[in-house]
Amino acid sequence: MNPLLEAEQALLGAVLLDPQQLAHLSWLAPDHFYRPVHQALFAALRKLRTGGHPAGEGGDAVALEWVTDAVEEAGVHVRGLTAAYAHTLIATCPRPAHAPVYARMVLEGAIHRTVTEHAIRLHQAARADALQGEVDNALHYADVLTDVLGDLARRWGCEPRAVAPVGRPAPGPPSPGRAARIAEDERFLLAVLVEQPKAIGEVVDWLRPGDFAVPAHGQLYRCLAVLHHRGEPIDRMTVLWEAQHRGLLADGTLSAEEVGAVCDGIGPGGADWLGEQVIRSSVTRTAAVSARAVRALAEDDSLAPGRLIGHALHALGPLDEVRARWRAATAREAPPVPPPPAEKAAAARVQAALARSSPETATRASARPRPAPKPPATRTSSRHHG
């Protein structure tokens, strides 16, 4: 039998035997159980205890009532639960006092299961975005997975900190339907950068060699970036020479014919637009790789929850890095918005007020002749004496 299933049964049996054990399980939720019938039964037990069930007073008769009431309450939400199965759970429990340990086993299984589910969603979103030329869904589910890992870490009682595993997952190739188009975009971008060397300044701050799906294209881009950094001219000959210095021709990564074909090609479009296509595919590709790595970690039952969460956060690190560069690539400065007429009028009133209160204006105002004051008018007395 599955050890996780036995742990769920032992925990429920312990609570059915000793309702006081629920006082030590406030951190465990019904959805942490794998089987729906176990979820419903644990929720019913918590509801009965919160409602003041007399089982807390002890006694055999009360314990029997506790079991029957729990089965009746759980039966409202799930089908197939009988009193016979409740007594089977009681017989499965080795020691009721060990309920917190059994609950920790249940939580551990829930952590592995939850991380697996969210990793699958991230992978599906990354594949869908790759087909549609988008990145928003993949980035959204990556944020959801990060938040879930943080919440699980707090429930388990550990710090959500990225920890590198022993091995690193190998990046997977793009889907066959998009591989040709991605490679074509990369060739177009490299051709534009060779034809217009100044255009590399538009992409070099946020585009990296690892963003290229074809490794040879990434190495060619590295050669272009090095030539740009050194301020040397860029053409087919200088790129070929740089590739030779880096050993790319000797180890078979590139050939002189491949370098010539890319450098002599025609690249339609601007460097910034083509660069965005390359890094967009890098985002979805990296998201898929991270999702596969997290899922592989979650399916390893030998990993303790703390290590699983730390390794999963580390696997999402490359996606955070490429996401930051994607945002830098797509950021656009908004043109200044002219103030509305009301604000213009208010600014004019402020300037007028300042001009009226300036020292020069006050001096001119004091130098003007003032009219002589008028004598006070005599008032007619309105008082009458009788």
Rank of each mutant, 00 (worst) to 15 (best):
P336R: 12
L313T: 03
P341D: 03
R292Q: 14
R285E: 01
I266D: 04
G269Y: 10
V289M: 13
I279A: 03
R332P: 00
D264P: 00
D301W: 07
S281T: 11
P268I: 07
H314G: 04
A324S: 10
R323Y: 06
V350W: 14
E299T: 15
R325D: 06
T286Q: 04
R295T: 07
D300W: 02
D320F: 10
W273E: 07
A304H: 09
A348V: 05
I279G: 02
K344V: 15
V350C: 05
H314F: 15
R332A: 02
V278Y: 09
L274H: 02
A352S: 07
R323Q: 11
K344G: 01
D301Y: 06
P336E: 07
A346C: 07
G270S: 10
D300S: 06
A334N: 05
E299M: 15
G275W: 14
E299F: 07
V350T: 13
A329K: 08
P340F: 08
A315M: 08
A304N: 03
C263A: 05
P339I: 06
R327G: 03
A334E: 15
A298P: 14
P340H: 13
E343R: 15
T330D: 07
G267V: 01
A271M: 10
G275R: 12
S302V: 12
L316E: 06
T284N: 08
G267N: 01
I309D: 06
I309N: 02
I266K: 04
A291E: 10
V262Y: 01
T284C: 06
L319N: 01
V350L: 14
P336L: 11
A312Q: 13
A342C: 05
D320P: 00
R349V: 08
P338Y: 09
S302E: 11
D272Y: 00
R280W: 10
G260F: 02
K344D: 03
V283W: 09
A346M: 15
V278P: 00
T330C: 12
A312D: 10
G267E: 02
A348Y: 07
A353R: 13
R327K: 08
A287C: 06
T330N: 05
H314K: 12
A304F: 09
P305G: 06
A291F: 14
A293M: 12
I266R: 06
G260A: 02
R349Y: 00
G310T: 14
A342T: 13
P318H: 11
R292S: 13
D272N: 02
R349N: 05
A342N: 06
R292I: 11
R280F: 10
R292A: 12
A261F: 02
A348L: 15
G267A: 02
L303M: 04
G306W: 06
V289D: 14
A324C: 05
G270Q: 05
E343G: 01
G275Y: 09
I266P: 01
V337F: 04
E276K: 15
K344P: 00
P336C: 08
E343L: 15
D300V: 06
R307S: 11
G269S: 03
L303T: 05
G317E: 15
G267W: 00
I309R: 01
A342R: 15
L308C: 08
A324Y: 04
P335V: 04
V322Q: 09
V337P: 01
A324W: 11
R295F: 01
D272I: 03
R327M: 09
E333L: 15
